[in-house]
Design a protein around this nucleic acid. Structure first.
Lengths: 176, 176
DNA sequence: GTTATTTTTCATAAAATACTGAAAATACCA
DNA sequence: TGGTATTTTCAGTATTTTATGAAAAATAAC
């Protein structure tokens, strides 16, 4: 046992490690573990994979693989490709990190920030009818939250539509 | 029914709405619903509250209230205060939005970004033994992810330790 | 020390979420 | 039209997360 690993064994061990650990990290980030694993698998795969290959690699059911692949496609992190003359659907991930980042930012803006802003607007509206010091404080607090989110959303939208090369040097320079 | 609400009724209705909805938003953000509700309650409360008051307001059990209050304290979003001459523990939230934001950023850096960086470093290490084009691609991908996270962590740490007034105008100006 | 109040812990219950396996639907081909 | 490969759906099950409530521990007052 414990012979020195061959080069390709070392690679696939490292890759398995990455897939497993990325799944765990995903959980901590509030992302479905399996979805994170599939994503890890795809961004480190030299070629597009089929549902069956994903099932095989991760030892998961068809339904599970299918659903999570669809989710990844819905997020825009993975696209399905059809090879001419073949009927199987292949999946490949966007590998460029900055693009991945922008996609995630935009999806989270859409799914998380926007609804929160709507809720705050709604609450501010409702509170209009109230008078007094306590009501004023409440309204101010809600408004502060709303203004912050709106600002953050704005910044994120700008960042997510920039090229990496134009944002990072700037960020690092000015945040000395 | 459906008489016009008095001012204070309007306020507490708006506040209930906020607490409920903020809980829902929290879920979408991957945060325990009850924890988000308690937080919403505290940031809109004109005074510090006891565990029993939180239980009463949200109709939740002592264990639930207790655990989630502890979590909020662990996050640094809520602090417990003891009033002299009283033995009860009171809880109050940081209300200033920018401070809240910085606290959350730093906690997420610590809990989410750091571990991910460690995982990537570990994987990069392991992959060292592998040779060939595929191995090179893997190593490059892992490194790209690591570099990105490290950079993001850096930017966030700078942002989270700035004053609001010094960051926002800058961000908005340069991200035109 | 005894009692009263408040906090903490923990086993269990309930709810939410994710996964499986198999059937149904769809697309393609001869 | 029937046959085969592939994708999609979904009811049932398993797992994980969150909440409960009661009991134990800690703390303060007497």
């Amino acid at each position: 046992m414990s012979e020195k690993l061959s080069s390709s064994e070392a690679l696939s061990a490292a890759r398995d490690e990455f897939v497993t650990q990325w799944g765990a990290i995903g959980s901590a980030w509030g992302i479905n573990r399996t979805m994170a694993q599939i994503h890890a698998l795809l961004i480190t795969s030299p070629r597009a994979l089929t549902t069956d290959e994903v099932m095989e690699e991760l030892k998961i059911s068809r339904g599970n693989a299918h659903g999570n692949l669809r989710e990844l496609v819905a997020w825009g992190l993975v696209r399905s490709v059809v090879r001419k003359g073949e009927r199987k659907e292949y999946f490949e991930a966007e590998k460029e990190v900055w693009k991945m980042f922008c996609t995630i930012i935009n999806e989270r803006r859409r799914r998380e920030i926007k609804p929160a802003m709507e809720v705050l607007a709604e609450c501010a509206q409702r509170a209009k009818g109230a008078r007094g010091a306590e009501a004023d404080a409440f309204i101010r607090q809600i408004r502060a939250l709303g203004d912050f989110l709106s600002m953050a959303d704005n910044v994120l939208s700008k960042v997510a539509s920039s090229r990496e090369s134009s944002v990072l040097p700037l960020a690092l320079k000015f945040l000395k």
